[in-house]
Computed example of a mutant assay.
Amino acid sequence: MRNATEFHGVSKEYGRGEARVRVLDGVDLALPAGAWTAVMGPSGSGKSTLLHCAAGLEPVTSGRVLLDGEVITGVPEGVLTGLRRRRVGFVFQDFNLIGSLTAEQNVALAAKLAGARVPRAAVRAALGEVGLGDRLRHRPRELSGGQRQRVALARAMVTRPAVLFADEPTGALDSASARTVLDLLRGLVDGGQSVVMVTHDPGAAARADAVVFLRDGRVADRLVRPAAAQVAARLVELEEVAC
């Protein structure tokens, strides 16, 4: 079975000498394609670092990372940039939209930077899929937080990436907007999209197909289709151990 991303003995360190910190510690992990995996863990467990390494945004110190079946460890930066542009979509907590551009222009610019020839109709279709077909000409300041995140989601998906990475995509949203974004992610996965999401919210994690827990840079547990209460209880246990 093809995997969205794979880690083989991956470690990631920051700093040198006595200031060196190991954030990921020999991680072996395979996240299946066509599924939604949530990544959770106590503060400092390595969640965001794992996501960034999986997407090729940060190099690893040792080990191998595969993205959509292809090794991305140690490849030239130019090659890696091309792989990211073609195969990776990324959604951030703070949206990262350009304030002077309309929703349509934000989505189109991302496709252009990726070197993709995406027609205007496809950009508009992407915004329509996230329920913003009537907000094409609105700038970020004219949109709610939930709408801005939906623009960011359309921007990430317009090039049809192999893997969509989401770093706390509902962290800045109210509960209603968060549900809308999670519903959109669920729809994408049901259509075959691979999604890897870091979250601190047990309710958001419970929408995923599986939840991977990290502790001290290592994989501590994995639950398949858990209830939110199960996720919350396991997270509390890991936080107590971390303390």
Results as ranks from 00 to 15, higher is better:
Thr5Trp: 04
Glu6Tyr: 01
His8Leu: 04
Ser11Met: 03
Glu13Lys: 10
Tyr14Pro: 04
Gly15Arg: 08
Glu18Ile: 05
Glu18Val: 13
Val27Trp: 05
Leu29Pro: 08
Ala30Thr: 13
Pro32Glu: 08
Pro32Val: 09
Pro32Gln: 03
Thr37Gly: 05
Val39Ala: 08
Gly41Pro: 07
Pro42Gln: 11
Ser43Cys: 06
Gly44Val: 14
Ser45Asp: 08
Ser48Pro: 00
Leu51Asp: 07
Cys53Asn: 06
Ala54Tyr: 01
Ala54Pro: 02
Pro59Phe: 06
Pro59Gln: 10
Pro59Asp: 14
Gly63Glu: 00
Val65Ile: 15
Val65His: 01
Val65Gln: 03
Asp68His: 08
Gly69Asn: 05
Gly69Ser: 06
Val71Gly: 00
Thr73Ala: 13
Glu77Arg: 14
Gly78Val: 12
Val79Pro: 02
Thr81His: 02
Gly82Ile: 07
Leu83Phe: 09
Arg85Leu: 04
Arg87Asp: 15
Arg87Leu: 14
Val88His: 14
Val88Thr: 14
Phe90Ser: 07
Val91Tyr: 12
Phe92Trp: 15
Phe92Ala: 09
Asp94Phe: 14
Asp94His: 14
Phe95Arg: 13
Asn96Arg: 15
Leu97Gly: 11
Ile98Glu: 04
Gly99Val: 12
Ser100Asp: 11
Leu101Gly: 03
Thr102Val: 05
Gln105Gly: 00
Val107Asp: 09
Ala108Trp: 00
Leu109Gly: 03
Ala110Arg: 11
Leu113Lys: 05
Leu113Ile: 15
Ala116Lys: 15
Ala116Trp: 03
Arg117Tyr: 00
Val118Met: 00
Val118Phe: 01
Arg120His: 13
Arg120Ala: 15
Gly128Phe: 09
Leu132Ser: 02
Gly133Leu: 13
Asp134Thr: 12
Leu136Asp: 07
Arg139Glu: 13
Pro140Asp: 12
Pro140His: 12
Arg148Val: 08
Leu153Asp: 09
Ala154Ser: 09
Ala154Cys: 09
Ala156Val: 02
Met157Val: 06
Met157Arg: 12
Arg160Val: 07
Ala166Glu: 12
Asp167Cys: 06
Glu168Asn: 03
Thr170Trp: 11
Gly171Tyr: 04
Gly171Cys: 04
Gly171Lys: 03
Ala172Asn: 14
Ala176Gln: 14
Ala176Asp: 11
Ala178Leu: 06
Arg179Pro: 01
Asp183Thr: 11
Asp183Trp: 05
Leu188Pro: 02
Leu188Phe: 11
Leu188His: 06
Leu188Gly: 02
Asp190Met: 13
Gly192Ala: 11
Gly192Asp: 10
Ser194Cys: 03
Val195Asn: 07
Val195Arg: 05
Val196Trp: 07
Val196Asn: 07
Met197Lys: 07
Pro202Arg: 03
Asp209Gln: 02
Val211Ile: 08
Val211Gly: 08
Phe213Ala: 05
Leu214Trp: 03
Gly217Val: 12
Gly217Ile: 12
Ala220Glu: 12
Arg222Val: 15
Val224Asp: 11
Pro226Phe: 01
Pro226Ala: 00
Ala227Met: 13
Val231Trp: 09
Arg234Lys: 12
Leu235Gln: 09
Val236Ile: 09
Glu239Arg: 14
Val241Ile: 15
Cys243Lys: 08
